[in-house]
Nucleic acid binder design. Structure first.
Length: 411
RNA sequence: CGGAGUGUAGCUCAGUUGGCUAGAGCAUCUGGUUUGGGACCAGAGGGUCGAAGGUUCAAGUCCUUUCACUCCGACCA
């Protein structure tokens, strides 16, 4: 894409009403736009990142047999009354229309997905099933904060699995642990993300979170680097330590951001909706469930928090809006034609290129913009490099550039 | 929801004990100069001072109400 066509622009100054690094950088660089507290729109660059993250997650979900669906955001009040959550969930958005009918805006989708399954599956032959979606969620956070990390509207992947036996559930749950590790590895924060033993909330006694270590995190975890696992402070006690075979002395305390969470739901939601199956002997049993969440918007914010430097964002190749930032410092027409040509050829090779073709913008400003936007690789092309038919290549994470010929580059 | 703070141009901010036609930088537009780390010169456009009400000869400035945003806390599938 030609940068001259991009309707967003970078800003020199961060907005006064943002404090978090992720929001400051993402807004300055033109990835997101703030609409109200905890609510952001995704602009062209931000949406490209979001789509990349989405596709990584989608592939991983499909690989474990997940079937993608898209459930409604409006959810009937009766369903929430059935599970007892209409009044017990503080952060549930309740909206009403002119006929005074009340509905919930979905913060999670157990109340929808279980009735859907019930509509189609009732035999042991119909299970196991896993369905998932990637969708906007609404939660009435009493206090939205930290930019994109804790919003009132946010984007989440939620998967729900359905099983006829505890063993089948456990197998799947174990598989999902690896799937989650793989996802966080692929988006570039695998080395700093730990599977963390945590509270199960209202569902069950314990659950597993995936926590990314950064000072911006609002959670506190204790990490065992050797075993590559951690414990959330909320369940940090002798009993848990012993059950996991961890020694207090070896643990390192860190702040972290919860980027994913997997739960054993047991029959908590299948029961109220009577989601059950008939076994080989004609006997009826309640279905066992698991649920698996990843906040995509939070994940993007976490990547920014964890990897950015003082000049701007640093995107891992896998989720960068473009792979290459082609920065042209050329001013006369013949040179510009040559750069245009290089841009077209890179595109033909299937490269994703953001081409800074802006005329009248000085080099310093282009470099500053390029650092801020944070593409992993920068190609600088100027009259100087063009004289030698070459390009200067610099990685966002490195300070030294190297020069190679255009021919070699295209090879 | 409790505590603290902030709302003035698209953005970042200044604006004295109430006083004349509300300012600067960035951004935008015009012209010129410049071109390897957010340049410079000259000019121009851009405002319901968050909103409503009040006090006053006079309100960005004082009072009341209200809304929004931020931070700390509580809360958090």
């Amino acid at each position: 894409m030609r940068q001259s066509q991009l309707f967003t622009k970078t800003k020199k100054e961060a907005p006064a009403d943002e404090v978090s690094k992720n929001a400051k950088l993402l807004i300055r660089a033109g990835f997101i736009n703030k609409e109200m507290a905890g609510v952001y729109s995704y602009l062209p660059l931000g949406l490209r990142v979001l789509k990349k993250v989405e596709n990584i997650i989608r592939k991983e979900m499909d690989n474990v047999g997940g079937q993608e669906i898209l459930m409604s955001s409006f959810q009937p009040k009766e369903n929430w009354e059935k599970t007892g959550r209409w009044n017990s969930m503080d952060d549930l958005y309740k909206v009403s229309d002119s006929s005074k009918r009340e509905v919930a805006l979905g913060p999670t989708h157990e109340e929808i997905v279980v009735p859907i399954l019930r509509n189609y599956a009732s035999s042991y032959k119909d299970f196991p099933v896993a369905v998932y979606q990637i969708q906007n969620k609404f939660r009435m956070e009493l206090r939205a904060k930290s930019g994109i990390l804790r919003g009132r509207e946010f984007i989440m992947k939620d998967m729900y699995s359905f099983h006829t036996s505890q063993k089948d559930f456990e197998n799947f749950y174990e598989k999902m642990k690896d799937v989650y590790k793989s996802i966080f590895q692929r988006v570039g924060i695998g080395d700093m993300t730990y599977m963390t033993f945590a509270s199960g909330g209202t569902f069950s006694k314990y659950s597993h979170e995936f926590q990314t270590v950064t000072p911006a995190g609002e959670d506190t975890i204790y990490i065992d680097k050797e075993k590559n696992i951690a414990i959330n402070k909320e369940v940090f006690n002798d009993e848990v330590l012993e059950s996991l075979g961890l020694k207090k002395e070896k643990l390192i305390e860190s702040h972290s951001i919860e980027v994913g969470n997997i739960f054993d739901l047991k029959t908590k939601y299948s029961e109220p909706f009577d989601l059950s199956f008939t076994d080989e002997k004609g006997q009826k049993h309640t279905i066992l469930m698991g649920c698996y969440g990843i906040g995509l918007s939070r994940l993007i914010g976490t990547v920014v928090e964890a990897l950015a430097d003082d000049k701007g964002i640093i995107w891992p190749e896998s989720i960068s809006p473009f792979q290459i930032h082609l920065v042209s410092l050329c001013t006369d027409e013949a040179d510009i034609k040559k750069v245009d040509n290089l841009y077209e050829r890179l595109k033909l090779q299937g490269k994703e290129v953001l081409y800074d073709d802006r005329i009248g913008v000085r080099p310093g400003e282009k470099f500053a913009d390029s650092d801020l936007i944070g593409m992993p690789t920068r190609y600088i092309i100027s009259p100087k490099t063009l004289a030698n038919e070459s390009v200067e290549i610099k990685k966002r994470t490195e300070s030294e550039a190297k020069i190679i010929s255009i021919d070699e580059l295209l090879k």
